[in-house]
Simulated assay, not measured.
Amino acid sequence: MSKSKNNKISNVLFAVFILLLLIPQTRQPIQVFLQKGLALFSPAVEDKSDQERLDTYQWNLTDLNGVSYDFKSAEGKVVLINFWATWCPPCIAEMPSLVKLHDDYKGKIQFLFVSNEDKAVIAAFLKKRGFNLPVHQPVSAVPEALNTSSIPRTLLIGKDGSIVIDKTGASNWNSDTVRETIDKLLLE
């Protein structure tokens, strides 16, 4: 094939790709697919000297059934908090790895999946994908160390309140690195 014919084919494919991104029904699946490539990588563990410490556990939430949850009850436990939304492609891309981690570590560590969206929207999202996760909504202000302006943001907090992993963006939460880190934190 000639170089100009290859260029034409490339240009047509690029134009089709851009067009698909402009169509609302195809935009999110394409974005999720692209984000899954980024979600192949494990999040980095913070160096001990760089770990921020949670200074307060004053935070109230409710689950999707309206049951109150006082974050103070998580003090002294290993906690994984994921801030996410159903409309967020990176959140959707990393969710399967978080579900696998949750399924293996529920009861061992405290999981909080936090979203500000309407409860019905969240419930429909979880049902459609077959996810059984403890989703909560904030009732009071988020502690400053956990406050976020970008999602997804996921934090792994040790028993002493140290933020061991603080990752914004899609990641592989079911990785050996994360599992080994959790296992070490559970032994402390």
Score class of each variant (00 low, 15 high):
179 R>F: 08
186 L>W: 01
175 S>N: 13
181 T>P: 10
132 N>I: 09
19 L>K: 00
2 S>R: 11
146 L>C: 04
188 E>T: 15
116 N>V: 07
112 L>S: 11
89 P>G: 01
66 G>M: 12
87 W>Q: 08
128 K>Q: 14
118 D>T: 10
118 D>R: 11
109 I>W: 05
167 K>S: 09
149 S>T: 13
91 C>L: 01
178 V>T: 11
3 K>R: 13
174 N>A: 12
37 G>L: 13
58 Q>E: 14
125 F>M: 11
125 F>H: 14
175 S>W: 13
65 N>F: 01
183 D>W: 02
36 K>G: 12
170 A>L: 06
145 A>G: 03
187 L>G: 04
42 S>W: 09
61 L>P: 04
152 P>T: 06
74 A>W: 06
3 K>L: 13
2 S>M: 06
136 H>T: 08
82 N>H: 09
33 F>K: 12
56 T>M: 12
85 A>S: 08
81 I>F: 02
52 E>M: 13
27 R>S: 08
173 W>L: 03
130 G>K: 13
145 A>T: 04
177 T>Q: 13
58 Q>T: 06
6 N>I: 14
23 I>R: 00
177 T>A: 12
99 V>W: 03
83 F>E: 02
51 Q>A: 09
161 G>V: 11
154 T>W: 08
156 L>Y: 00
14 F>R: 03
185 L>I: 06
10 S>G: 15
110 Q>A: 13
64 L>T: 12
141 A>W: 06
69 Y>D: 04
150 S>M: 13
180 E>N: 08
101 L>F: 06
98 L>P: 07
98 L>G: 07
122 I>K: 05
89 P>R: 02
69 Y>V: 14
156 L>E: 02
19 L>A: 15
179 R>Y: 09
117 E>R: 00
75 E>Y: 02
122 I>T: 11
54 L>C: 05
166 D>W: 05
123 A>P: 01
127 K>W: 02
101 L>W: 06
19 L>M: 14
139 V>T: 08
104 D>N: 14
101 L>E: 07
20 L>A: 10
96 P>C: 11
40 L>G: 11
119 K>P: 00
158 G>M: 08
16 V>C: 14
105 Y>K: 07
83 F>M: 08
49 S>V: 09
23 I>Y: 03
173 W>I: 06
141 A>I: 12
121 V>W: 05
94 E>I: 12
181 T>D: 11
126 L>N: 04
8 K>E: 04
